[in-house]
Structures are given as C-alpha cells and as structure tokens.
C-alpha cells in the first residue's frame, strides 16, 4: 500500500516536472524577459507562442471569444504578436492587424542599434496610439501596459 502511494506520488511528481508551464506564467515570463533581457525576449516569445498556440487549438470558439473580450493576458498578447493565429476562431481578428504591424515596427527599431532614441520613441508612440484605438480606452489591457513600459525603457538605452 505504502509502495503504491510512493509510486503514485513519484508519478505525479514526474508528470508535474515534465508538464509544460502554465500559459499565465509564460505571459509574465515574456514581459519579465522583455524588461530584463532584451536579447532573450525573442526566445521567450517563441516559448510562449508554442504554448499559446496549443491552448488556442484546444479552445472552443465561444471560449476564445469570451476570454478575449475579458482581456485574457495570453490571448491579448497573441492578438498583438500573431493575430492570424486567431483567424480560425475569431472573426474580428483583422482588427488586431494594425497594432500588430506597429508592434513589429517597434521590435524592429528597438533591435536596430543604429536607431536613435527619437526614432524609437516615435514608433512606440504610434504603437501606443494604435493600442488606445483598438483596445480599451480607459485602461490598457494587460499585459500591454507592461509591454509598453518595457519598450519605452528599452528605447532609452
């Protein structure tokens, strides 16, 4: 009996260790990496994307819509970085394309060491403005507030 319990516990432990990280912690991880380690940001995004894509695949259309309307951080981040991944389950996905394009431009300019702080600030301003038009007006959807803060901080360096 004791052996069985130990075995079960071990099995649970092994599965826990080997199961993928939860998406919510990945959002935090992505944002934290953006702030602390710009060079590792792309890698963190890739990791996040793999999990997010799997989660989206397992979601029903209704569930995804409900979560996105409730500003689920994982889906908000997907909508900004990979809006086309929402296309199968979210009819309004094109509404995210403009900001996604601007987000792309920001990442590009922040990765360009020759870009001036002014150029960087200009791109971030456009992204922030787009986010204000596309997402909620009275507050920025999480984690976009923290993402913008990271970009702004990076722009100064």
């Amino acid at each position: 009996m004791v052996q069985t319990t130990k075995f079960t516990l071990t099995l649970l432990l092994v599965l826990a260790v080997y199961s993928p990280a939860k998406a919510s912690s990945s959002v935090d991880e992505v944002i934290a990496t953006c702030s602390k380690d710009w060079d590792g940001f792309d890698k963190a995004l890739a990791k996040f994307y793999t999990i997010a894509k799997r989660d989206i695949k397992n979601m029903s259309t209704q569930e995804l819509t409900k979560k996105l309307n409730a500003e689920d951080p994982q889906l908000v981040l997907v909508s900004l970085f990979w809006p086309t991944d929402l296309s199968e389950k979210y009819l309004s996905w094109p509404s995210f394309k403009d900001c996604s394009e601007k987000n792309f431009a920001v990442r590009k300019v922040l990765s360009n060491s020759a870009a001036t702080p002014k150029e960087r600030a200009a791109e971030i301003e456009l992204l922030e403005s787009c986010i204000h038009v596309t997402y909620y007006k009275d507050h920025l959807a999480k984690p976009l507030d923290r993402l913008l803060a990271c970009y702004k901080d990076r722009a100064k360096r």
Binding site: D42, K43, L45, A46, K53, W82, R107
Partner: peptide
C-alpha cells in the same frame, strides 16, 4: 503545429525583417 512553432521559433530567433515585411504586405 509543430512545424509552425519551430519555424516561428527560428524566425523569431534571427528575424529577417525584410522578408517578414514582404509577407505582411501580402496579407
């Protein structure tokens, strides 16, 4: 899915900005 994920991973790792821009234009 796996293919896309690995492609994204590699493309993000070393972004070829011009190529991505071309794709964006297309869409």
């Amino acid at each position: 899915l796996a293919k896309n994920a690995s492609e994204t991973k590699s493309s993000i790792k070393s972004i070829k900005w011009d190529e991505v821009e071309k794709q964006e234009d297309k869409s």
